[in-house]
């Protein structure tokens, strides 16, 4: 496969996944904003969504305060913000457009249709109660995109590059989700003692579609340690760090070329540390520190994938 083609496929998948994660992040904040909170709590929540994405400076250059309206405008519609849902879906479509001969026609049509609808999405709908519907829509377009990939793509190189992109992006996003929520909460093993704390935890679980999953797995009260264990180490939870890294590792193995062995080793090492890791050790080390380290390693893997497979190889 052409390196450039692989690059487009990989980024197409990453942008779709990114759009979904931005929608999840905004959705959970929107839900939280309806829960009574301490003075300034709501705006702090919206500010935190910006810090996840590292976009505070870009935001501050355009808006004075992190109000819900301003953050939504910036993170949903702002075409100059490369992480807005608008930008992600446009980039996904542009990448798909460049390789429409490699993906199935269903995949192309899905991605193109998503972009066309997003481009024409009526803005007034985000001002009212229909905002939740919009986030659901973004998530379902992403589900559809993944479903079409699984249901129509030949299990060849193209497929593995798409999956690699999806799960590297997801590993990164889930780690940031956990990190930002723990930032806002007192850490510790005690169950949350206020209703607001409870909602914070349940909102985090809901943001990764894990609320019912938690009940099913633990049949217990919601505690920070168990939430972290579920989202980091659980091998059955589809958005956990472990599941994402298993997928990254397996897709990398399938793609293996003459220069990728070190990348595969690093992915394998990270995957093994999640497989054999214990949540007690994670907390002993410090959750924030652990997640920061994890994100650095995921970024490193992304760079190495580009080096090994995507960036044109030297012709000499």
């Amino acid at each position: 496969m052409l390196s450039r083609t692989a690059d487009h496929l990989y980024w197409m998948a990453r942008y779709i996944e990114r759009a979904e994660n931005v929608a999840r992040m905004l959705d959970v904040n929107y839900r939280m904003s309806m829960v009574p909170q301490a003075e300034g709590g709501i705006d702090a929540g919206w500010g935190a969504t910006l810090s996840i994405t590292g976009l505070e400076d870009a935001f501050r250059s355009k808006h004075s305060a992190a109000t819900m309206e301003a953050v939504l405008e910036f993170m949903v519609f702002d075409g100059t913000n490369s992480c807005s849902i608008m930008s992600c879906l446009r980039m996904a479509r542009e990448n798909a457009h460049a390789v429409r001969g490699t993906i199935t026609s269903e995949m192309w049509e899905t991605t193109n249709d998503t972009w066309l609808k997003m481009r024409d999405y009526p803005r007034w709908k985000l001002a009212g109660s229909e905002i939740g519907e919009f986030f659901e829509w973004v998530k379902f377009r992403s589900h559809l995109s993944r479903g079409v990939t699984l249901g129509t793509m030949l299990r060849d190189e193209a497929f593995h590059f798409i999956r690699l992109g999806t799960f590297l992006e997801r590993a990164d996003a889930t780690a940031r989700f956990i990190d930002v929520k723990y930032h806002m909460l007192v850490d510790g093993a005690a169950p949350p003692d206020t209703a607001a704390d409870y909602y914070q935890w349940s909102a985090l679980l809901r943001s990764v579609s894990a609320f019912e999953v938690y009940r099913k797995v633990y049949r217990d009260l919601i505690t920070p340690v168990k939430v972290a264990e579920l989202l980091i180490l659980n091998d059955q939870m589809p958005r956990s760090l472990r599941t994402s890294m298993v997928e990254v590792f397996e897709n990398l193995n399938a793609l293996s070329n003459y220069r990728s062995s070190e990348t595969e080793r690093r992915a394998g090492e990270l995957q093994a540390s999640l497989k054999f890791g214990r949540i007690e050790d994670v907390f002993a080390r410090g959750l924030h520190e652990y997640l920061t380290q994890f994100i650095v390693r995921v970024i490193d893997l992304g760079n190495r994938v580009s080096e090994d497979f995507l960036v044109p190889m030297s012709s000499s």
Partner: peptide, 21 residues
Amino acid sequence: ELVEGQDLFVRDEHLYMRTTQ
């Protein structure tokens, strides 16, 4: 393959495309 100019290069009097392999 659908290629662009940047995917192709000349080496040793022959034409090649850059692939993942």
